[in-house]
């Protein structure tokens, strides 16, 4: 096995894992605290990418694009929370799944009306276009930036949840909503805030991936499923679970796609390995999820009982 290739794929897996964490953390926050299944969460990921693309093309600078797009995405999140999510909090999960499924259709089509059916490429500033040499490995500097930004966002989130008053309320809300509101906390504003925070994180992930894949309609539809796999494996509502599961899924998916055929070749014929490896690697994360749930029906880190 080629060590350079392995290192590159390892970093790619890390990058995917961190992006997944940005999407999944919001999902797991919203689910853990609001008890709300939001299939349309990744629509905010897509909107983040498109809004950032628009600002970047308008201002001619990606960094400014991101900085302006973040509050706008948060605002969109607040609107979605107020209009669609709030009436659904008291409903069962089936209703939530269906309504947010409808929301995906609405947001996808609306995005198509606003930005057109074609994707939008997001140009990077020169200083991000280059490559960085680390030992024998050459890496695009933007990918390193994604990893750095992802780690920073994760650290910020951990700090927010574990060491601030807001984080305390969030954790309290996750374990007992009724009690928190009985103690005089404005639970509605807390919910709206959590929802907007989740939207912003998902939007950030979309903004970071846009320069690589370009912003496109339906880009969220594959991410949302993977993000759900992450929070299910991690245990719904658990931030630690989401982080570990996101990195695990990101690494397994990326490494599986590149090296599974090599591994298979050790135990079977070349031909058999080359036909079965792509199939297995595409299914790998779902196989892992099924395996985890078969043994731990509430995920690896189930949150404390309510």
């Amino acid at each position: 096995m080629d060590l350079t290739l392995f290192t590159i794929q390892l970093l790619n897996g890390l990058q995917l894992g961190l992006l997944l964490f940005l999407v999944a953390s919001g999902l797991t926050l919203v689910f853990g605290i609001l008890d709300f299944v939001n299939l349309a969460h990744a629509s905010l990921y897509m909107l983040g990418a498109f809004i950032c693309a628009s600002f970047t093309l308008w201002l001619g600078n990606f960094v400014w694009g991101v900085l302006l797009a973040l509050p706008v995405t948060a605002l969109v999140g607040l609107v979605v929370e107020r209009v669609v999510a709030r009436p659904l909090y008291a409903r069962d999960h089936l209703d939530q799944v269906l309504a947010t499924f409808g929301l995906i259709l609405v947001i996808d089509t609306a995005a198509q009306l606003i930005w057109g059916p074609a994707g939008i490429a997001v140009p990077l500033p020169d200083w991000l276009e280059g490559q960085v040499q680390i030992g024998a490995v050459t890496l695009p500097s933007f990918r390193l930036l994604i990893i750095g930004a992802g780690l920073m966002a994760a650290a910020g989130l951990f700090w927010l949840v574990n060491y601030t008053r807001l984080g305390m309320l969030i954790r309290a809300g996750a374990s007992n909503r009724t009690m928190v509101s009985a103690l005089g906390i404005d639970i509605q504003s807390l919910f709206a805030l959590v929802f907007a925070l989740g939207a912003t994180l998902a939007g950030l992930a979309g903004m970071l991936i846009a320069p690589i894949t370009e912003a496109s309609i339906g880009m969220g539809n594959s991410v949302i499923i993977t993000a759900f796999v992450v929070i299910i494996v991690g245990g719904i509502g658990s931030m630690k679970g989401a982080f570990i599961a996101a990195l695990m899924i990101g690494l397994i998916d990326t490494l599986g796609r590149s090296f599974l055929d090599d591994i298979f070749k050790l135990v079977m014929s070349t031909e058999a390995a080359e036909t079965s490896a792509p199939a297995i690697s595409a299914m790998l994360i779902y196989i892992i999820m099924a395996a985890v749930l078969a043994f731990k029906p509430s995920g690896l880190f189930p949150p404390k009982v309510r």
Partner: peptide, 29 residues
């Protein structure tokens, strides 16, 4: 056998995961 060990959202999502497995299996053949 596996899905029914889970409840609620976990059931929703694991049934979807199995469907995705079939989807990707067919895509790759």
């Amino acid at each position: 056998l596996i899905c029914l060990r889970t409840r609620g959202v976990y059931f929703i999502m694991i049934t979807m995961a199995f469907a995705q497995m079939v989807y990707y299996l067919i895509v790759s053949i």
